[in-house]
Amino acid sequence: MATTISAVPFNGTKEQEQELIELIAAHKGQKGALMPILQGAQGIYGYLPIEVQKLVAQHLGVPLEEIYGVSTFYSQFTLNPKGKYKVSVCLGTACYVKGSGDVFAKLSECLGIEGGACTTDGKFSLEACRCIGACGLAPVMTVNDDVYGRLVADDIPGILAKYAE
C-alpha cells in the first residue's frame, strides 16, 4: 500500500503552528482530547498532513499511529489539502447510472490523482460526492461553484483546460 503522505508540499506558517500548540495546551490532560484537537487542527490548516499530526503527537504525547488511526477512521478528516479548484463528481444513484463513474475515472486519469487527493501544484483536488440535487442534469460535477451537467468522459479535458490559466 502506498504511503498516504500528501504529495502537495506543506506550507504551514509559524502563526498556524502557534495556534495549534495553544489549542493542544488548552485540551491537554482532558479525557478524549484528541478529537477536538484534530477538529481544531483541520480548522487551522484545512487538512491533517503528517507535519500537523506530528505536531499533535509531540505536544499531546500520543503516538503518531494512534492519531493517524483516528484521522482515517472518521470521514470528516482529510489527509490532503483542497485544491484551488475543487472538483467534485456526484456518484449518487441517478448520476451513477448515467455514467458518472466513467467521468470520475477520466478525471482521475487526467489529473493523475486518486479521489480525495490533490495535484502536487495544489491546483486541483478531486472528490466524490453524493446527490447535489441536480439529477435532471445527470451525470453532474462541480468545479468550485461552477456546475457541469450531462457529461461524458470526453468532455473532461476541455473543462479542465478552462482552469489551466
Binding site: 500500500m1 502506498a2 504511503t3 498516504t4 503522505i5 503528517i50 499530526q53 503516538p63 503518531l64 499511529e65 494512534e66 492519531i67 493517524y68 488511526g69 482515517t72 477512521f73 472518521y74 470521514s75 489527509l79
Partner: peptide, 23 residues
C-alpha cells in the same frame, strides 16, 4: 508503549499499519 502499528481506516478498509502507511 511504542504503538508503531495499529488499526487504520474504517469498515471494510480497516487495516493494521503504520502512520501514513510508511515502510
Amino acid at each position: 508503549d511504542v504503538a508503531i502499528i495499529g488499526p487504520n481506516g474504517r469498515g471494510f478498509n480497516t487495516h493494521i499499519g503504520t502512520a501514513f502507511n510508511q515502510n
